[in-house]
Design a protein around this nucleic acid. Structure first.
Length: 885
DNA sequence: ACCGCCGGGTGCC
DNA sequence: ACCGCCGGGTGCC
């Protein structure tokens, strides 16, 4: 049993498109009957051709023609891919089908007889039609196009029959069409003629390999951070910095683009244009957890602060260097805006400004990045950039910079110094790691550096664009970005110098509002930090590539046709492309990666002890009685064949048993393990639902909502006993009405049936009627802690459980034995969390030696290096233990 | 001639 | 479009 089921079904549900069922009236002169509407009314919406692109099969292909080229600016090359788009509001023909090139520019229309045949099946989403133009060049009035028809297997005959009525037939075999088609861009017949088809296993292992062994030279150069970074970087962090700086200042064409006789040519789609595609000024930093993605990013922000120059404490306009001219143009000034300090949650560094009295000196000696390796032959940072960064460092380098800047090309000076580069970097992270960012800025940035950081979070956040655009760093959460989206938010109005997505895989769902909200941010440089680059499948990668503005992948069709489908159908070219793509935009190191023969991090050896605790007789009796009752209930479901609709009950039972292993009081006696029967009276049902939601909320500490995959916000329970955020489920009910179904089990759900959790304490340790008693497991923990304290009273430990109520019980035991402790769980505000971490990390004598940590709240990105022991209190399966250790 | 044929005008949907 | 189609002009050989 895994939560995977729950998640995937919710996702599928969320991803299924919902069409507008109302017919549109057209004032078109040539209205005629659409026989398909009736013939196909049985086709269910859920079987649409856009639901899951991977499950589509090729129905066949045909030739058609594109007409009206005269009237449109879009041009097409030989073998170029084109997209077909319905144009139902065309005043001359409501069946019109536009043909667009890869850039989205219209090329022409599908000839009207063919369009009349295509439009009904396109509108009903029974088929997705892709086009490729075998001979695109030099056509004046019309051009040929080969169309591939993709859809769900069950819709194939409907589509073929329909086309037949209009006198069109699809070619299916390789005969006749095969050769010309498979040579046309992206239109291979691979699904009917599997090429070197890889098995799922092989494919998976290829994925795993994708990110390994990326040890190319351009990724092993090192760069010293700006002086404003006070932490000494490890070699691999200097490599990350070097790579990131060079990517931000890159003039390279994006992957799969070439310059060919004055045009920029995309080798995947065969699209060409005069305009140079934007370089990808960013990428994916996919280092394993713990390798310092945060530090590397902070170093990047300070080192490539503006125009390839590091952050200084001074106004650069006063600089008398060889690059003064360009800096003057850029007009980037620092430290002159103290009056604009952010208010509210903003944080401004206070510092003793020694050295400020003599700007000239400190400028020249202090605020310069240095290279580890001798600079002359290194090409990892654009030489010109480097020269600017080094300006004034030494006479020798000055000369070099002089020479270089004199020889600057127009493109270079424009990109680096058009004076319009915005100032702030936006960092978006899950709330749980926000404090980590704040801490790390605090820790790694020199105290005297004047860096404005604004935490854009909470109801007090400033709605003023000016306030934000004058910051150096704005920190916010995914939820905030999503919430602000479409609400005239300053986040979406400002042009950012840089947007950094921390735990970037959170935008993997292409249809989630959160993903759209993040995609719509405007930035010059874009970064994705993640420890899990391709988590579930290739699909995850699309939203990241789209965020990075990687042409032409911002449109899902091109991503799917050029990479995703070729890879999933096992075409060799697909995997090759994917590898090339990932290699060019990703830096990934794991804990086992070596630099110069050494592991990146030398951590003390980790020792894992499993201690099995024997339950007391009384505990065992309770356990067995619940277990037996549960077995009976589940057996009944099983016999009825309703296991799947009752899986929430099954999970709840398992949770209860796990709780009983920790402490009997975790399972409230009022919570009967009997299930929610369909024939309950309303009052009984209500009571059971309330008990159920209480159980869910108290058991998992920081339970997720299956719709937003985030922590539950105003949890409500449905009649079918599933718990969601109230706003999430309300939105589902609203958009699905009048027949809304539960995203998890497809039962009918109604707004008026939702139940909120009544306001009352749910913490068993706070219940007055229950006297404090220990449990076998608590006893075992306490004796281990006390033994440890006797040996060395300064040793710090973390005690982890997914059950916050268990942590509360442990609190009592800790107090009894006189331990100093602190606590971190999902219910705490950001401020409280920060305090908890800081007090625990502190080395002062009154600092707590124990932290009680809820599993979910401590999930990612916490730095709790003060501890040397960790007690995992929950029963663990093998799967769990692998994830944790 | 209620035709054929000619040649000019014209051209997506 | 070096096409097709339209509709006006035209009409034995």
């Amino acid at each position: 049993m895994s939560w995977g089921f729950m998640r995937s079904s919710a996702w599928k549900f969320l991803q299924s498109p919902r069409y507008n069922r109302s017919r549109v009236e057209y004032a078109a002169p040539n209205i005629f009957f659409d026989e398909v509407q009736d013939a196909m009314s049985s086709a269910d919406d859920s079987t649409s051709a856009e639901e899951d692109l991977d499950s589509l099969v090729l129905f066949g292909m045909m030739k058609g023609s594109v007409v009206g080229l005269r009237y449109y600016a879009g041009v097409v090359n030989n073998n170029e891919m084109v997209a077909l788009q319905r144009e139902p509001n065309n005043p001359y023909d409501r069946n019109a089908v536009k043909v667009n090139n890869v850039n989205g520019e219209q090329v022409g229309h599908i000839k009207k007889e063919l369009a009349a045949a295509l439009s009904p099946v396109m509108d009903r989403k029974l088929v997705k039609i892709e086009g490729a133009v075998p001979y695109g060049a030099h056509n004046v009035f019309t051009m040929p196009v080969t169309l591939s028809f993709w859809g769900r297997e069950e819709n194939k005959t409907t589509v073929l029959d329909h086309l037949k009525k209009h006198g069109f037939r699809l070619e299916t075999g390789p005969k006749g069409f095969g050769k010309s088609f498979s040579s046309a861009a992206g239109s291979s017949l691979s699904s009917s003629l599997p090429a070197v088809q890889l098995t799922l296993e092989q494919l998976k292992s290829e994925f795993d390999k994708l990110f390994e062994d990326l040890k190319e030279d351009d990724k092993t150069q090192e760069l010293e951070p700006a002086r404003s970074v006070q932490t000494k970087l490890l070699p691999h962090q200097k490599q990350a910095l070097s790579w990131m700086v060079s990517r931000e200042n890159s003039q390279e064409l994006p992957p799969f683009w070439e310059e060919r006789n004055g045009f920029y040519y995309n080798t995947l789609t065969n699209f060409a244009e005069k305009e140079r595609p934007e370089s990808v000024r960013g990428g994916i930093l996919a280092d394993d957890m713990g390798l310092g993605k945060t530090l590397s990013t902070i170093a990047l922000i300070l080192t490539n602060f503006h125009d390839g120059k590091p952050l200084t404490t001074l106004t650069s306009g006063k600089q008398k260097t060889n690059t003064a001219e360009s800096q003057g143009q850029c007009g980037e000034t620092r430290g002159s805006d103290n009056s604009q300090a952010a208010t509210g949650t903003s944080r401004k560094r206070q510092k003793p400004r020694k050295g400020k009295s003599d700007p000239q000196d400190s400028e020249e000696e202090e605020w310069l990045p240095r290279k580890t390796k001798s600079s002359s032959s290194c090409g990892f940072v654009d030489d010109d950039q480097f020269a600017m960064a080094l300006a004034g460092a030494s006479p020798a380098v000055k000369k070099k910079s002089n020479k270089k800047s004199a020889g600057k090309t127009k493109a270079q000076s424009q990109s680096k110094c058009d004076g319009k580069l915005p100032r702030p970097t936006l960092i978006i992270c899950p709330l749980s790691v926000m404090s980590n960012w704040i801490d790390q800025f605090e820790q790694h940035v020199r105290a005297e550096v004047d860096l404005n950081i604004y935490v854009y979070y909470g109801p007090e956040r400033s709605k003023d664009s000016n306030t934000l655009s004058q910051q150096d760093v704005v920190l916010t959460t995914y939820s905030t970005v999503t919430h602000d989206y479409g609400n005239n938010s300053p986040l979406h109005k400002i042009k950012w110098l840089r947007v950094v997505l921390d735990e970037g895989h959170t935008i993997r769902n292409p249809n989630a509002l959160q993903t759209k909200a993040v995609h719509s941010l405007d930035a010059v440089r874009r970064w994705v930090l993640t420890g899990t680059p391709i988590q579930n499948s290739l699909k995850d990668l699309w939203s990241i590539l789209s965020f990075l503005k990687l042409k032409p992948f911002t449109e899902r069709e091109w991503w799917h046709r050029t990479i995703q489908r070729p890879v999933t159908t096992g075409e060799e070219a697909g995997l090759r492309r994917l590898q090339a793509l990932i290699k060019s935009i990703t830096l990934r190191r794991t804990k086992t990666t070596k630099v110069k023969g050494k592991l990146l991090l030398q951590l003390p050896e980790r020792k894992v002890y499993m201690q099995y605790i024997k339950l007391s007789t009384e505990e065992r009796e309770i356990y067995e009685s619940v277990q037996n009752e549960g077995k009976a209930v589940i057996g009944r479901y099983f016999n009825e064949g309703t296991i799947m609709t009752h899986y929430a009950d099954v999970l709840a039972l398992l949770v209860r048993l796990r709780q009983l292993c920790c402490h009997p009081h975790l399972v409230s006696s009022t919570l009967s393990s009997s299930s929610i029967a369909a024939n309950s009276t309303p009052d009984e049902l209500r009571e059971k639902l309330v008990n159920k939601i209480k159980l869910v909320l108290s058991s998992g500490s920081d339970e997720e909502c299956a719709i937003c995959l985030d922590s539950l916000n105003i949890p409500v329970i449905t009649h079918c006993a599933h718990v969601f955020c109230k706003p999430c489920i309300c939105q589902v009910i609203h958009s699905e009405k009048p027949n809304a179904k539960c995203p998890l089990c497809r039962s009918e759900i109604r707004l008026e049936h939702l139940l909120e959790c009544p306001e009352e304490e749910m913490d068993p340790s706070a219940r007055k009627d229950q006297k404090w008693v220990s449990s076998s497991k608590v006893d075992a923990l306490m004796s281990a802690l006390m033994e440890q304290r006797n040996k060395d009273p300064r040793v710090k430990s973390i005690v982890v459980s997914q059950f916050t109520s268990f942590l509360s019980l442990i609190e009592t035991a800790l107090r009894e034995s006189g331990f100093m402790f602190t606590r971190l769980d999902g219910s705490m505000t950001q401020k409280k969390r920060t305090e908890a971490i800081q007090s625990f990390q502190s080395s002062s004598v009154d600092s707590p030696t124990i932290m009680l940590l809820s599993l979910k709240a401590g999930g990612v990105g916490l730095n709790l290096t003060a501890a040397s022991r960790l007690f995992l209190m929950d029963p663990v399966s093998r799967i769990h233990s692998e994830r944790i250790f």
